[in-house]
Amino acid sequence: METSKNKFTNLDKIFWPAEGYTKGDVINYYNSMYKYIIKYLKGRPQSLFRTPNGIKDKGFFQKDAGEQAPDWVDKYPSWSDSAAKKVNYLLCNNKPSLLYLANLGCIELNPWNSTVAHPDNPDYIIIDIDPSENNTYDQVIETALIVKKILDKGAATCYCKTSGATGMHVFIPLAAKYNYEHARTFAEIIATMVQHELATFTTLERSLSKRGKDHIYIDFLQNKIGSTIACAYSLRPRPGAPVSTPLEWSELKKRLKPEQFNIKNTTKRLEKKGDLFAGVLKKGIDIEKCLKKLSA
């Protein structure tokens, strides 16, 4: 483990009381997952979600690196709408930085959709499938498969991963060819079509109070600068220590449970399956061609 720069603290602190997993387990997890997860972090400003007291605690968000951040962690100054000021975002460009975040109590990692090389052009579109308490995971899967079917019609590639919580994320590679506005409008088109297909149990209503209590929210609004969701292979501060896990489309079957993929078995799965998400950062789709096919 990289210890030369980091001074790890409270490694025995229990983060998951039911399972007995500790902060040390989190650091170990990210240490062993480094070679896979770094691709999805490098160059991307991080929104920190710190849970230094484990999953029973609410935790807090932090965007600004602050005074304490060591010099050897890269930073990126940028305006934050939510903080309404210029903040120094942390960049996770190497292993010591990753473990630094883990030691801060970041169970979960939330990078931007774009890198500092071209901050206005996201590398991918995210369709966030976010169920209510009353939806089944089978419905989440059904929704993801409709997203896939529609994108198939548009001959656009896409990749899926469990969110690690109750939902699912579908990523559409863009190779930074389009800006956030174009990405978001395209996401809205897809989301609208999906909602139209699954009108009985999906919604595009952002407001929680107006949203049906048994509807899946198809969220296309994550496609804007500074917006973040848990990245591929991120742990989630939830019971069972689940991991946001990329899946093969053929794995999306009834009775799949997101808790199946967790801190205990992810490294083994990766040894077997490899990084199923690699395509997300490769060849981007051609939105215009896709629109043509979709309106055909």
Partner: peptide
């Protein structure tokens, strides 16, 4: 649910908006 066929008006509007913008 039935497979999607009809692209309804909102989608159409968004599509032409995006095409024009691109």
């Amino acid at each position: 649910q039935p497979r999607f066929k009809i692209v309804h008006n909102k989608t159409k509007d968004l599509m032409s908006q995006l095409k024009a913008s691109l």
